[in-house]
Amino acid sequence: MPDDSKLIRLIKQGDKQAFDTLVRRHYPNILAFCCRRIGNRATAEDLTQDVFLKLVAAIYKYRAVGKFSNFLFTIAANTCNDFFRKKTPALSGDDIEEQADSGGSPEDTLIGGEQAKQLYSQLRALPDMQREALILHYFHGLKAKDIAEIQGVVPATAKSRIKQGLDKLRKAYKEDMGL
């Protein structure tokens, strides 16, 4: 299977199959990120579509500096941030729980376990950049330097956001547990 840089080269040459492969390879990850960021599946799917259409427009000028996944996550993060800037987030932690209790099939619900529900509601309480950093770090396994590249900050700031976010999550968890 060709790697991302090869696929991008092929896409620039007009290879549509390469675009197909690239989308299928990265779609699940980007969808998951948007879902975690936004908390609403339908909106996340729309934003994921935007991400890939922005990608295809930008790809002709793309120069491989750093990882392609970081570039893609940058587009995804910016797209989600633009969404928040334009709209007041309609969902609170309650909405996520409602969605989970909707009685839909496991494939339809975003989250299933109680702990996961709790985690999401606590995540949503965090400031945007900390939440984003935590999602990228813990859900997507990205290192601080990658997160820094995506968020356009220095690695120290990214590390600080992860730490501060984690501290706040721990505190919120303890409060919820009555500890």
Binding site: P28, L31, C35, E107, I111, G112, K117
Partner: peptide, 10 residues
């Protein structure tokens, strides 16, 4: 369902 208890099937 993944390890985080999520079900995000494309």
């Amino acid at each position: 369902m993944n390890k985080f208890g999520e079900s995000i099937v494309p």
